[in-house]
Design a protein around this nucleic acid. Sequence first.
DNA 1: ATGGTCGGGAACCGA
Length: 255
Amino acid sequence: MRLATFNVNGIGARLPRLLEWLEATRPDIVALQELKCEEHRFPADELAARGWHAAVCGERGFNGVAILARGPVEVVRRALPGDAGDRQARYLEADVAGLRFASIYLPNGNPVPGPKFDYKLGWMARLGAHAAALLAEEIPVVLAGDYNVCPTDLDVARPDQMAGDALCQPESRAAFRALVAQGWTEATRARFPEEVLYSYWDYQGGAWAKDWGLRIDFLLLSPAAADRMLDAGIDRDVRAREKASDHVPVWVDLR
DNA sequence: ATGGTCGGGAACCGA
């Protein structure tokens, strides 16, 4: 079975691209981020007409995450635990096809320093605590999404240009490293330990044409899920299409 | 060169 994550950067503008990618690659479970719409505006009918079940956590104009699957999506939680006052639509967790599967849109955190960076680090601390609790359940879990962190300079086309960015700060990297070190397998890097791979290219400055990208979209597999990993990849060609998102789908195949 | 590009939604904010 193929599991994927795709930051669509606006489901309204991206639906045709999403539908053609779903048809072309036939994934089984998909985490979506940056819907930028409320739940009642999510195109559930168009997706249902093509056989997709959907669970949605939306917000007007910003953020927004969803999970698509071929079968039922049983929502477990619609927010990351640890801050009842956090209303941003960045986390959705469900039981799907025998897995626990989460769609994550981690805060960007710019500018540094500032309240947005503090919010990012706080969010990462809460994610770390919740991820540890999920690991303790010893079930197959996949945490898929836009983590807004470049783990190392191998994941950054222009490290000097990004040195002051929230995505590359030592604190951001340390929090991501600590998360993975709990016992998660980051699928793409496990499959390609040394390769230069990106999942995002900025709209500005011709970044795609110059291949000035970042790798910030990941699937983290619990040990019970990692044991089933067959392959992983990034659908880079999606970025070359008309009206493309600035992110592309990242996927893992499990047996 | 103090810009450049998108999406959402209706003037700017977020990325």
